[in-house]
């Protein structure tokens, strides 16, 4: 799994709530049998018209916004369990997603792929959107070790929570399968005891 420790980057702001996984990657693009290439269709129907021409007013089509941090409104990633949503975001070059609230399955999928989901308060989220409004190149500093996000221009800083085990997985690039495979004896003992 991809490692993550620290990132300073501009952000792509998507100030919309309840962004569901069908928006992130519509079902009709789930037919691939590998993990790669989904970035092309990230937010497909918000990014492109029916004739495949780009929608110029959508932020991912605006060259003014670049960066490896996606910032979105609350309840991000609700809906289906498709891990393709996390793959698409990562494949499009993002390493971090910030929102004031994440849907459970999306959050787990992101963590299992080394894409860091960070939940911040509504107020801090508003502060990020404000900073990006003022300067489209506004930088955020994300430090997993200290579990902090800082708006570089203003110095506004917040802590974020992450399960200690998941944090060590991200820092070391280990995944759950590596962990459970080491527990094979416990699993067999459990099965025999039933």
């Amino acid at each position: 799994m991809k490692k993550f420790e620290r990132l300073t980057s501009a952000v792509v702001p998507l100030n919309i709530e309840n962004i569901d996984t069908d928006q992130i990657i519509p079902a009709r693009f789930l037919k691939a049998t590998t993990r790669e290439g989904f970035g092309e269709n990230l937010f497909r129907d918000w990014r492109y018209n029916g004739d495949n021409t780009p929608k110029v007013d959508f932020v991912l089509n605006d060259p003014a916004y670049k960066g490896q941090i996606l910032v979105a409104g609350k309840n991000f990633g609700c809906g289906s369990s498709r891990e393709h949503a996390a793959w698409a975001i990562q494949d499009a070059g993002f390493d971090v997603v910030i929102s004031s609230f994440f849907a459970d399955i999306f959050k787990g999928n992101a963590l299992n792929n080394g894409l860091l989901p960070i939940q911040v308060s509504e107020d801090f989220l508003a502060a990020i959107f404000k900073a990006v409004d003022q300067d489209n190149n506004a930088q955020l500093d994300v430090d997993l070790e200290s579990q902090t996000v800082t708006i570089v221009a203003t110095g506004e800083k917040t802590d974020f929570e992450i399960n200690a085990y998941k944090k060590s997985c991200l820092i070391n690039g280990h995944d759950d399968i590596d962990f459970i495979l080491n527990q094979k004896q416990s699993i067999e003992a459990f099965e025999q005891a039933r």
């Binding site: 289906s80 369990s81 498709r82 891990e83 393709h84 996390a86 399955i105 787990g108 999928n109 299992n112 792929n113 085990y165 995944d175 759950d176 399968i177 962990f179 459970i180 495979l181 527990q183 094979k184 699993i187 099965e191």
Partner: peptide, 17 residues
Amino acid sequence: GIGTSQVEQVFATQCLL
């Protein structure tokens, strides 16, 4: 419901974290 990494996890270990 689970994601595909977890599908792999259950295949490999019949368990989930």
